[in-house]
Amino acid sequence: MRAGPMVRLVARSLLAPSFAVAAAILVKGYADAGDGFSAGAVAALGVMLQMLAFGRERVARDLPLHLAPRVAMCGLAIALGVLIIPVLAGGAPLEHWPPPGEKPIYIGTLELITAVVFDIGVFLLVLGACVAIIDALARARAAEEEVA
């Protein structure tokens, strides 16, 4: 099954913007609407649209789909790290740095705080999990067609 030329054109031209929007949502999460979950969902939507429009095989040639589960697990590991490290250092789980009252480090307008790192973990997990699930279903479909 292949989508029509119009859908393919739109899908292809939306891939890069969806990643850009995801990055923006992620980075600006602490100042504006959006967070790791939304960012992950936007990025995953971009990838899913490609798969709907071009089929799994075509997309797998351009994007490293097989890495999706690893991306998800990395995200989980990052979030777990942010959760555990303060405990090892003697704090409460998920105690963020810098503590209240201290000035965070700025890069331009971007604040360096561990809550953002946690959010990046959430982002990677949502992106990886969505893509991995869709990819698994698509591969199942391909395998079924082969059998048939």
Binding site: Y30, A31, D32, G34, F37, H96, P98, A115, V122
Partner: peptide, 12 residues
């Protein structure tokens, strides 16, 4: 919590 968006601060 060094945040401007409450929802994000709650989540993270």
């Amino acid at each position: 919590a060094h945040a401007k968006a409450t929802v994000t601060a709650i989540l993270a």
